[in-house]
């Protein structure tokens, strides 16, 4: 059974209440064929544990790294991934699409 976005947000709350640093990453925009729809979530804790998906596995590693940093600073981040964005990121989406992901620390 796949975790739904509802399960993921509930888990984010449990993690935060348990005293863990938590950030929620959300797909806020997609161009072309993107593996996960706008609104999809990945929740990350300060140790890099994560649940959910923003890309079906293509860019989760990079999002987790950025999220750990955002948990540290308390500031949100906007990340863009995709084959059209070669200079900023080495990680491409195999499907050829592009996604924008916002990382929001839970304060």
């Amino acid at each position: 059974m796949l975790a739904t976005d509802a399960d993921i947000l509930a888990e984010a709350e449990r993690w935060k209440r348990a005293g863990r640093g938590v950030a929620i990453a959300t797909v806020i925009e997609t161009w072309g064929s993107a593996p996960r729809p706008t609104g999809a979530h990945l929740v990350i804790d300060h140790e890099g544990n994560f649940l959910g998906s923003v890309s079906g596995g293509c860019v989760e590693g990079a999002v987790v790294e950025e999220a750990i940093e955002a948990i540290g600073t308390g500031e949100p981040k906007l990340l863009e991934f995709g084959v059209a964005d070669e200079t900023a990121w080495k990680v491409g989406l195999s499907c050829g699409g592009r996604i924008a992901v916002r990382v929001e620390p839970v304060t």
Partner: peptide
């Protein structure tokens, strides 16, 4: 987002 908002 803060914890209260996430809880709501």
């Amino acid at each position: 987002m803060n914890l209260d908002q996430l809880a709501a």
